[in-house]
Amino acid sequence: MLKAVTGRILSSLLVIVGSSALVFVIMYLLPGDPVASMIDISSASPETIANLRHQLGIDRPFLLQLADYFGKLLRGDFGQSVLNSEPVLPKIAKHFPATLALAAASAAVSVIVGVILGVLSAIHRNKPIDLIARIVGLLGISMPAFWTGILLLLIFSIRLGWFPAMGSDGWRTLVLPALTLGLIGAGFIVRMVRNSMLEVIGDAFVVTLRAKGLSERAVMYRHALRNALIPAVTMIGVLAGEMLAGTVVIETVFSRQGIGRIIADAIMAKDLPVVQGVILFSSLVYVVVNLLVDLSYAVIDPRVRRSA
């Protein structure tokens, strides 16, 4: 077990190194001159441009640049914004909590709504609750976040005034964005849990459980649900990525200060070090979440634990 966990952690590290390198290569190959976004090339003297290039270190060979890049990463140096020379890592650190709160709240909405509705709809197949669950699933999957977001804003802040329309301070600002993003996740999870629950209910061991005289509640919640959650957990890992990506849109729609917003702004301003930093940071978060998901398998499914 311990061996498997260390193995899994090692391979996660490898993924992080690989994705860091990939981010660098993409940035390196990107057309356009970073210098151009800092000064007006047409009016600057060639010496100034060459100087600036030398300062940025982009006149050196690729491998040297790569080594330099990794060296800096190891020291926690993600570079500086080309716009205002603000160091990237502290900038991310400052805004990450807001994004984390949003992602966590959305994930909670997805999982709670998704699992409960999914289970109920499988148990009460073809009953009203099943219909509701299927509608939620359909809406979650098919409605784009920006549209749902604007709709919720319109109803709950502008019409009813229950929640603030913008900002990232206090839990009240979190409700609408989390619902918006959470609905997407809930849509996926509802469908997943419903299907896997139905499949498990059809399994042979459920007949055994009933033949033992167990109550339906024990059969469903103690036994079937735990089996049905195994594929759903994978889904949750994938959704973590969706949630991160979703924050870009949501933070823009709800005017929240988070790293999603930062990267959106940085892309608009061609502030490459910031873009690079946020991508790197996000992939780090994604890898960690999926590592946790993988490890949680072992908790739910003893077969994973034993074979490890």
Binding site: D203, A204, F205, V207, T208, L209, R210, A211, K212, G213, L214, S215, E216, H223, R226, N227, I230, I300, D301, P302, R303
Partner: peptide, 29 residues
């Protein structure tokens, strides 16, 4: 009723099945 039957199942009538591999819940000992 089903609840009356449940107190008989496993107690007075018990059953074993064709596929022993599939007849146990895989996630409990």
């Amino acid at each position: 009723t089903q609840s009356e039957l449940r107190s008989l199942r496993g107690k007075r009538i018990a059953m074993i099945f064709q596929e022993p591999m599939a007849a146990f819940d895989p996630v409990y000992t």
